[in-house]
């Protein structure tokens, strides 16, 4: 993100020569298109861009980008990306992961990358299912979900990815979905421009193993009533006539209300830059299923020290205090004595 020179590229400069091999109709295609279309607008260069992924359907993503990339190990992308980012703060580092990869096997790395605020743009494709292993429940699957590994229904309470990210002290948290390229591009752009770890949950449809999971919310004809768009500084309202909104109840709970009933002044004004994460957390948990109004957009965007620059500052400080590294002096740092040869 330190690229200052604007690089002129076109969408085709960002597509690799590899055939895209997701299932026909997969939501991943829309996300890939949004990213490839966004990159020229960011003015960055393919050679300064790195995509790191783990394992899963979404993790094939780097193969389709004409950038540097690593398709690594299940769950480990945030750790490997952290290594890239701290070694080379000059690079744009993206992480592509999924609900299984990022929240199950790799949950530890994800939360610690967010906690450290490493300068990464993390895209978590959430389809609430294990696709690449052909249909087992995931850590975001709802209770009762019947899958190959849960024929009697899942009994595991699911994670809310945004709650996890906020709990891990993430400085940028957003949600978008695979059917709205414009919204994805806007969200990805903001995530990219954020200095520090940016976490984006993408509702992504797996049309083979979990088709239609998000349809109630994201289908075009449902969006007005079901999709609550968060805009920083604006009252949180939705509905075809923006007749509904979110307000804070007397008990501190967020509630969906009719604006006419409570009055405009009772509607919560969205403040993504609020340092206290509790409202963002409450918004992230406004809906606990995929069948009721659900907020999208940027939940939280705050500035705090980015990890690689903190490392660089300590290196600079050490050089200033001790001078540049001197190997001969290092070997003498425990104290020495001389032995005189008599030969």
């Amino acid at each position: 993100m330190s690229d200052t020179a604007v690089n002129v590229t076109s969408k085709k400069d960002w597509a690799s020569d590899q055939e895209v091999r997701w299932c026909p109709g997969c939501g991943d295609y829309g996300i890939l298109l949004a990213v490839q279309q966004l990159m020229p607008e960011l003015g960055v260069a393919p050679e300064n861009t790195v995509f790191i992924s783990g394992i899963g359907c979404s993790s094939r993503f780097p193969y389709y980008m004409n950038t540097y990339g690593v398709h690594s190990i299940h769950g480990r992308a945030p750790a490997i990306a952290t290594g890239v980012a701290i070694a080379r703060p000059d690079l744009d580092v993206w992480v592509v992961t999924g609900d299984g990869d990022g929240l199950s096997i790799g949950g530890n790395h994800l939360i610690h990358a967010l906690r450290r605020n490493v300068d990464l743009t993390i895209l978590l494709f959430n389809n609430r299912i294990y696709g690449l292993t052909k249909g087992q429940y995931s850590p975001t699957s709802e209770i009762g979900k019947v899958t190959k590994s849960t024929p009697a229904g899942s009994i595991d309470p699911p994670f809310n990815p945004l709650s996890v990210a906020l709990g891990a002290e993430a400085s940028f948290v957003a949600r978008t979905h695979d059917l709205d390229r414009k919204h994805m591009m806007e969200t990805f752009r903001a995530a990219h421009d954020h200095r520090g770890a940016a976490f984006v949950e993408i509702f992504q449809n797996c049309n083979v193993f979990n088709d239609g999971q998000f349809t109630d919310i994201v289908r075009r004809q449902n969006r007005d009533e079901m999709l609550i768009e968060l805009v920083h500084g604006e009252p949180i309202r939705f509905g075809a006539d923006r007749q509904r909104g979110v307000s804070v109840g007397a008990d501190g709970q967020l509630r969906i209300v009719d604006v006419a009933e409570v009055g405009e002044e009772a509607i919560l004004v969205h403040d993504a830059e609020r340092n206290d994460p509790s409202l963002a957390f409450a918004l992230a948990r406004l809906s606990n299923d995929d069948h009721s109004p659900t907020p999208f957009g940027i939940f939280r965007r705050v500035q705090r020290q980015e990890y690689a620059s903190a490392i660089a500052a300590q290196l600079a400080q050490a050089s200033e205090r001790k001078g540049p590294g001197d190997l001969a002096a290092l070997l003498r740092s425990n104290g020495t004595w001389n032995v005189t040869s008599t030969n």
């Binding site: 790195v50 790191i52 540097y68 690593v70 690594s72 190990i73 480990r76 750790a79 490997i80 990306a81 952290t82 290594g83 890239v84 980012a85 701290i86 070694a87 080379r88 690079l91 530890n108 790395h109 610690h112 490392i311 290196l315 050490a318 050089s319 205090r321 001790k322 001078g323 540049p324 590294g325 190997l327 290092l330």
Partner: peptide, 25 residues
Amino acid sequence: QFGVRTVQAEDEIAAIGMALGAAFA
């Protein structure tokens, strides 16, 4: 002062992951 970057990673797996990422870079 030698430009040595050290990270106390969250676990052993992350530790080698960071080292490998740095090697790629």
